[in-house]
Design a protein around this nucleic acid. Structure first.
Length: 559
RNA sequence: AGGGCUGUAGCCAAGCGGUAAGGCAUCUGGUUUUGAUCCAGUGUACCGCAGGUUCGAAUCCUGCCAGCCCUGCCA
């Protein structure tokens, strides 16, 4: 059957949803797979949505099916065009194309109205004048059954008239709702005569002022799926109970009570360590100015991660690595980081940048700086070479020098010790100058002119390699280093998650880049050798600002 | 006696009656002008616990335990 945990259709990990699809296809329940990604446009997309996007679009693509992008826009009070635009943008950026036109639940408002009418005519829905509080009391509790609304037995004719009045704006907000007549004693709370329609005098971003009644999620979602011919409606675990209502609605509508109607399947949402995933909390971080905005590189939003330097391929790979299941889980950051590193390692041109510079003088070098050629990618010659410079004055990183090597493992520059300047020559530390505070200002070295592109002729072994930038050609740049946004694994569990924000989640450095980098494009990834993967900030215009996407894997600093 | 789900190595996650895939993390070697990459190797997983069925159970049955979700005119 399944070979090494891979799906038959494509070389991709199997999951329970693919198993269901394989079965449905085998039994010819559906001819083609049709999924949908149904965000509500009330916030920006985050990495958790990316998991769902990859699942829905990815699965459809693997089975040669289709996937719709559908805005679940049934609550105009919370929604906005700003979000629909950003969502479209993020989905495209991730590399997915929706089938045909973009869909909106609001496209189907006329049909929803007709379906609601059908339910009323069948005696399966009624207009209820209980207010919100009364309605809650009548609902009962988890352990106690509810009791029937006094409006439950209103005649079909009267309900029809009442519902028309609701639509015509003859009732105030909150005065009445349309409810399904199901079972006030059901153990599923969502089946205790759930609300189907409520009155809202709101302007809708798609339908304007045409409607003053808006359908509830449970009524709109299943019917939208059915209208669009969705076969597999994938959502997260908290909708498991709602599936009973999903099925009830479709089974009681003539158009949809067929074997090939949509079915809902639930998978677990993504939880990532050291961050939050709820829209409410992300909204709060933005509103309370704890981050720069939705696209702050520390945010788990698609736009934030994009600005940080994550690539679409790396996010898709991450989604594949974490898999799909029904287990409540918490994924470690290392999985995400490994996914970006794997992608960037392959595609990122190499460069050198000094983030915390100290001056280094080559005492035995005279004359103008010289140009040297360096590989753009040491493991991929096809990427070509770049020009770098070497000269009398250079910058190296403060952390790469120590007057006295702290231990035998120290592989960087120290006095009377040799080290390789990456892509250039072997140098030896000779002496050092300090400022009044005891900080190193300049390190004086000599270089071995016969070591470019080769080891010392006399067989001396030089183990250490450090990076540098030639001073006269160096271009000043700002580097922004990011760390986890929170100090605890699961900030959502805190009483006040804002209290556990990592105050050191951003540190800014002023240093230098190779001159060849001045025209770098925003979001283009580079590996600054020995420092990590960086990209030009997409919000800083002409300024040389680089965001660190992720540091290089570090297997020695903790020892 | 509310109901719905879930429990496989530190973290994800395959497996669906024939004797435990894979990834991340960890650790150990090797290569290396990035302490990166790459390569090779590295895990007694009492398969939540306890019974039962079976020649044989992570897979079937029973009971128990733990965690998550459900009482919006939110989605």
């Amino acid at each position: 059957m399944s070979n090494n945990g891979k799906s038959e259709a494509v070389d991709r990990p199997v999951n329970f949803i693919r198993n269901i699809i394989d079965e449905d296809l085998a039994q010819q329940k559906h001819k083609q797979v049709h999924t949908r990604f149904p965000p509500e446009p009330n916030g920006y997309l985050h990495i958790g949505h990316a998991k769902s996007i990859c699942l829905n679009f990815g699965t459809a693509a693997d089975y040669n099916g289709k996937c719709n992008l559908r805005f679940d826009d049934t609550n105009p009070a919370k929604e906005d065009m700003e979000y629909v635009d950003s969502i479209k943008n993020d989905v495209n950026w991730l590399g997915f194309q929706w089938a045909d036109e973009i869909c909106y639940s609001s496209n189907y408002f006329d049909q929803f109205y007709a379906y609601a009418t059908e339910l009323i005519e069948k005696g399966l829905a009624y207009v209820c004048f209980l207010n919100a509080e009364e309605s809650r009391e009548y609902r009962g509790s988890l352990k106690e059954p509810g009791k029937d609304s006094p409006y439950r037995d209103t005649s079909v004719e009267e309900n029809l008239a009442l519902f028309t009045k609701m639509k015509n704006g003859e009732f105030k907000e909150g005065e009445c709702v349309l409810r399904a007549k199901i079972d006030m004693a059901s153990s599923f709370m969502c089946m205790r005569d759930p609300t189907l329609y409520r009155v809202r005098f709101e302007h809708h971003h798609q339908t304007g002022d045409k409607w003053c009644i808006y359908p509830m999620y449970d009524f709109a979602h299943c019917t939208s799926d059915a209208i669009e011919g969705i076969t597999h409606s994938l959502c997260t675990l908290e909708f498991q109970d709602n599936r009973r209502l999903y099925d009830w609605v479709l089974e009681h509508l003539n158009d949809f009570n067929k074997p090939d109607r949509p079915h809902q399947y639930e998978f677990s949402r993504l939880n990532l360590e050291y961050t939050v995933m709820s829209k409410r909390k992300l909204h709060q971080l933005v509103d309370d100015n704890l981050v720069e905005g939705w696209n702050d590189p520390r945010m788990p939003t698609i736009s934030g991660m994009r600005r940080r330097g994550y690539t679409p391929a790396s996010i898709r790979d991450f989604a594949e690595r974490i898999g799909i299941s029904k287990v409540d889980s918490m994924t470690e950051m290392t999985v995400l980081e490994a996914a970006v590193r794997d992608d960037l390692n392959k595609v990122a041109p190499r460069s050198m940048a000094v983030l915390d510079p100290i001056k280094l003088v080559i005492e035995n070098y005279e004359g103008e700086p010289q140009a040297l050629m360096a590989p753009i990618h040491p493991q991929n010659e096809e990427m070509g070479k770049r020009e770098i410079f070497f000269g009398k004055e250079l910058y190296i990183d403060r952390a790469d020098f120590s007057e006295v090597a702290p231990n035998r493992k120290f592989m960087r520059l120290a006095l009377d010790k040799e080290v390789r300047l990456r892509n250039a020559y072997v140098i030896k530390g000779e002496r050092v100058e300090y400022d009044a505070d005891g900080n190193v200002t300049t390190v004086y070295c000599t270089y071995d002119p016969d070591t470019h592109g080769k080891n010392p002729a006399d067989g001396r072994k030089v183990k250490g390699v450090i990076h540098f930038v030639e001073a006269s050609k160096a271009v000043p740049a700002e580097f922004r280093l990011y760390d986890r946004l929170f100090t605890v694994e699961n900030p959502a569990k805190e009483d006040n998650f804002e209290a556990v924000i990592n105050s050191e989640s951003l540190s800014v450095k002023q240093g230098y880049i190779e001159p060849g980098l001045v025209d770098s494009k925003p979001e283009q990834a580079y590996q600054f050798e020995r420092e990590g993967y960086f990209c030009r900030d997409n919000q800083s215009g002409e300024q040389q600002v680089y965001n660190r996407t992720v540091a290089l894997r570090d297997t020695w600093s903790k020892k």
